[in-house]
Design a protein around this nucleic acid. Structure first.
Lengths: 194, 194
DNA sequence: TATCTAATTAGTTATATATCTAATTAGATA
DNA sequence: TATCTAATTAGATATATAACTAATTAGATA
């Protein structure tokens, strides 16, 4: 996550009214007037705050007739909130070391994957590892959740040490776990290689 | 964590200069002039920013001769950064439901703990559970780290299901885990009952 | 005590922003 | 099309704040 996005996120969250909006939406979606009512503020004020929150991507909206409902995306919120605890680690990814061409990527996949699709070994170099992880994780369906057993079984179709692969998917934010079920993260949370 | 502390935290972090300071201090402590030098800013500007960061508690300082070194407290940073993802949950704790007198606490401990110190069962009511968890966690030494095995063994001196207790200690921020070792959190991160 | 170094405080300026009222827009429905 | 509702935009005001220079303070040491 780059610096100015992080600044925007924390500026957005660093306001009592907006924190109260987040707290409300954690309970479920609401429309603007309802938020204004609950907070004792005028609708334009709510529009103003929702815009800032929407700009970060943590809130989206759906229209139903004349009413627009606002939803909190808790996964994104969590991801962005935790980003500051990893600040500086990302620097690597903006280095030219991390620029990967299509050709290079093909080459890396070819080097580490057998013709019948099995992973020969987990690359020790971070960049290569991320490319491998991204390649295999695409088998999961966005929005669908999986049991740990399913995840393990899938990994074992291409690599013996399923625990490592599963752990790395979580660590690099390809997937996340909630209530012992696994789900793909939106691509924008993935490392920026592929 | 209460609202205004959260606002102050995110306001503090929501500034590019201060994020860069956090990134620097994650590598290790630095003194003011060094930070000013690395960021291309004047010392008073650094004082200004460090004050805001110190006010949140995420930074502390130690003097060595004429030079003051600034340190980042990563545990606190993590705790505060993640607080927004739990916003609203805390409300319970300010309800009168959550006011616990000394007498009540003694009563609860007596109800759930046998005369020889064993936990009869884990209370299902959150308030009571937190009191029990706080009681037993005090056996750990602040600042010391423990292996998972040690933690399990200690729990088994008073309760069979060690996994549950360990998990709840983490969940309620009595302890945290890093590199598979366990450590007590500062009391201010504990639930506010006891 | 005088002097040195690093940090802080005071005061200034330019910019950003939270909130309001009034006016306007976007869609739905009679 | 006329009208209704919810949301947004425009414009105003008050407050907050990031950066600077100049002056001061806090501790160390000659």
């Amino acid at each position: 996550m780059q610096l100015d996005k992080m600044v925007a996120f924390h500026k957005a969250v660093g306001d009592p009214t907006r924190l109260r909006i987040i707290a409300l939406l954690r309970q479920g979606p609401l429309h603007g007037q309802a938020i204004a009512g609950k907070l004792g503020l005028r609708p334009p004020t709510i529009t103003h705050h929702l815009k800032k929150l929407k700009d970060t991507g943590m809130i989206y909206s759906r229209r139903d007739k004349n009413t627009i409902y606002f939803y909190l995306d808790e996964k994104k919120l969590t991801f962005m909130a935790e980003a500051v605890t990893r600040i500086g680690d990302e620097k690597v990814k903006t280095d030219k070391e991390w620029q990967v061409t299509e050709k290079e990527e093909r080459q890396i996949l070819q080097n580490f994957i057998t013709v019948d699709g099995k992973l020969k070994q987990m690359p020790s170099q971070l960049k290569k590892r991320v490319i491998i992880l991204a390649y295999y994780v695409k088998a999961f369906q966005p929005g669908k959740t999986y049991e740990e057993k399913e995840v393990n079984e899938y990994i074992q179709t291409f690599f013996e040490d399923y625990a490592t692969v599963r752990r790395e998917w979580i660590m690099h934010h390809f997937m996340y776990r909630e209530n012992n079920r696994y789900e793909l993260n939106p691509q924008e949370m993935w490392p920026v290689v592929v």
